[in-house]
Amino acid sequence: MKYKGKLFRASKEATGDLNAKVGKIPQQLKSLFVLFLVLISLFFLLRHFFTPDTFGKYGHYRAAAIDSIMSQPLRYAGAQLCMECHDDIYALKIESYHRDVSCEGCHGPAIAHTEDPSEFVPPAPRERGYCPLCHEYNPSRPTGFPQIDLTSHNPPKPCIDCHDPHDPKPPHTPEQCSACHAEIYRTKAVSHHAPLLCTRCHEAPEAHKDQPRMHLPSKPTSRTFCGECHAMEADSPKDIPRIMMSDHGIGYVCWQCHYPHYPEVR
């Protein structure tokens, strides 16, 4: 009964005087409550002061950082800008082998020059050492890219004595396939096929040397082509190794097993 009475009183108080209800919360909890409130406010205050202004505008980062990164000055102007004043050179280059080689790839970053041509004039790489960055023979370069052997290609003259850097047409069209297929040429040169000319196996139109991708040479298409020299009954020099065309590597073309530019047998 006593218990019931107490309960009843509590509910009455709850609906009635709030203060009285608060008074019912134990003393130690009230002190803790205060402490928590203070700590939480402190947290928000500190967070407010330590979070940069624009943090969280777009995501979990300082939005202002984007602006400071974007404000970085440009150094490379881009070929379009050079055209405005050097339209003659631009027109020459855009039709040449160097059409995709950017002006500033050779002359260095030049935005300062475009703003005031008298203040800063970009240097020109006139020395022999520069062009080989792109043109010295290197087996890792893709086949068809024009490469030279630096030690034998007209030393020690600077390249620009004979080639206009803005229209680098060779003084005469390169005769040798090795000009652009140096790796294949060198590989073949130390193989059993060294004595064979490229043109024995590839019919290369003259225009291939001018516009290589527009006029591609032919490639052997059948087993009988190799058989012209290697078949048992072939009418070719006696020292050429022979195979039985009818049972040697049946079902494949020869170059699926033998690299034609370096034909190894094992």
Binding site: I66, I69, M70, S71, Q72, P73, L74, R75, Y76, G78, A79, H98, D100, V101, S102, E104, G105, P109, C134, F145
Partner: peptide, 23 residues
């Protein structure tokens, strides 16, 4: 690398793309 953010937002190409001679 930032993809040259300061360049691409102004409509230019990144510097590496700009100078690549073979695209």
């Amino acid at each position: 690398c930032t993809f040259c953010y300061h360049r691409i937002k102004k409509g230019s190409n990144p510097a590496c793309v700009e100078v690549c001679p073979t695209k």
